[in-house]
Nucleic acid binder design. Structure first.
Lengths: 178, 178
DNA sequence: ACCTACTATGCAACGAGTTGCATGTGCAAG
DNA sequence: CTTGCACATGCAACTCGTTGCATAGTAGGT
C-alpha cells in the first residue's frame, strides 16, 4: 500500500488534520492519488500506532477537537526506506478504454456523449493546470529545492491531460467521420 | 465495479476460458485494465449466476476441464446498459508521482534510478505498441467496424506511453542538472 | 534425472477501498 | 427562518483486490 506514503509526503510538506488531508486528496495531491476522508482517518490511526506521526490535540468550541498530525523522525525514515524500494506496477483502470474497445457492442450515442464530456473535462483540467503552473512557477528555470518536486508533478499532470485530450479529439474525429 | 464489463467486452470479441481471459488481462486488455486469474474466476462465477455468460464444459485428459464462457443475450444487454451510464472518475494512483512530490524527503539516488527504469519501460512499451500498430493496422484510414475500437484503444496506449516517456525525460534532465 | 514453465481450475485469508451513517456548531444565502 | 455548506471526527458493513496455497499432467531445457 502507498496511501501511507502519500500521506507522509503531504505531512512532510505541512502538518495537518485528517480533514485537511482529505481536502488535499480532493485537490493538489488528488491529481495523482485519490482517497476519501474515511480512508485517511483509518490510515492515520494506524500510522500513529506505528509511530510515523504524532498528534497534537487542539480544543475547539462547538466542534470536535482538531487533531494535528506531524511527521516524526521514524516517519521520515519510512519515507526514505519506501522510496528506495522497487516501485510496483502502476494500477491502470480505464472504463473509458473498455467501452471504446467494445465499440460495436455498446450504446453508440451514449459513447459519443461520453467522449465529448471527457474531452471537455481534459480541456478544463489542462487549462487549470497551466494556470497553476504560470502562477506558481513563473520562472521554471529558477526553482528552489522545495519547488522542484511539485513542479515536476504538475508537469506530469499537464502532459497526462494533454495526452488524454488528444486521445479524445482523435477518437471523436473517427467516430464522427462514420 | 467494471471488471465484469471488461470481461464482457473481451468475451464479445471471442469466447474464452477463465485462463484465457487471465492471459488477455496480462496482454492486450491489460494495457488498460489489470486483473489476476483468481479475480477473473471469481467474477466469472458471479456472471454465470446472473446469466450474462454461459459455460460449455470441455473434457481434457490429465488436466481440469476447460470451461468455455460465451456471452449471452443478457450479457450483451448489460454491456449496452452499462455503456449508457455515466462513467465514474478514473482511478489514479501513481506512486511515482508521490515519490517525486516528496523529492527532498526521499532517497535521491534510488529515485534517479527509478526514473531511469521507468523511462526505459515507457520507451519499450511505446515501441511495442507502435510495432503492433504498424502490423495490425497498416492502413488506419481503412478500418472496418470491428477494428475501430481496438485501433482507438491502441492509439490511446501510444499517446499515454509517449506522455509518460516525455515526463521521465524532462524529470531526468531536471534531476541531473542539479 | 531434475527443474522450470505452461495449462487449467479454484479456495481461503487478508488487506484495501467504498458507501452509508452519525454527531453537532457556525455562518451565509435565499 | 429555513436550507445548505463548511468544519471535524469517526464507526460499521460491505465489496473489491491481492497473496498464498493446492492439484496435476505434459513439454522442454541443463
Amino acid at each position: 500500500m502507498a496511501l501511507e506514503h502519500a500521506i507522509l509526503v503531504s505531512l512532510a510538506e505541512r502538518s495537518a488534520t485528517g480533514y485537511d488531508l482529505a481536502r488535499r486528496f480532493d485537490a493538489s495531491i488528488g491529481h495523482f492519488w485519490k482517497a476519501t476522508h474515511q480512508q485517511v482517518y483509518k490510515v492515520l490511526a494506524r500510522m500513529q500506532e506505528q509511530g510515523w506521526v504524532d498528534v497534537e490535540q487542539v480544543a475547539q468550541a462547538g466542534r470536535p477537537d482538531r487533531k494535528v498530525h506531524r511527521i516524526t523522525a521514524a516517519g521520515r525514515d519510512e519515507l526514505r526506506r519506501w522510496s528506495a524500494e522497487p516501485i510496483g506496477p502502476e494500477v491502470l483502470r480505464s472504463s473509458f478504454a473498455v467501452a471504446l474497445r467494445g465499440l460495436p457492442n455498446v450504446d453508440q450515442d451514449a459513447l459519443l456523449a461520453h467522449v465529448r464530456a471527457r474531452r471537455d473535462e481534459h480541456a478544463a483540467t489542462l487549462e487549470a493546470y497551466e494556470k497553476d503552473m504560470a502562477r506558481t512557477f513563473p520562472d521554471p528555470d529558477a526553482l528552489d529545492e522545495a519547488a522542484l518536486g511539485p513542479y515536476l508533478v504538475l508537469r506530469g499532470g499537464i502532459l497526462t491531460e494533454a495526452a488524454g485530450l488528444q486521445w479524445c479529439k482523435e477518437t471523436l474525429a473517427r467516430l464522427e467521420a462514420r
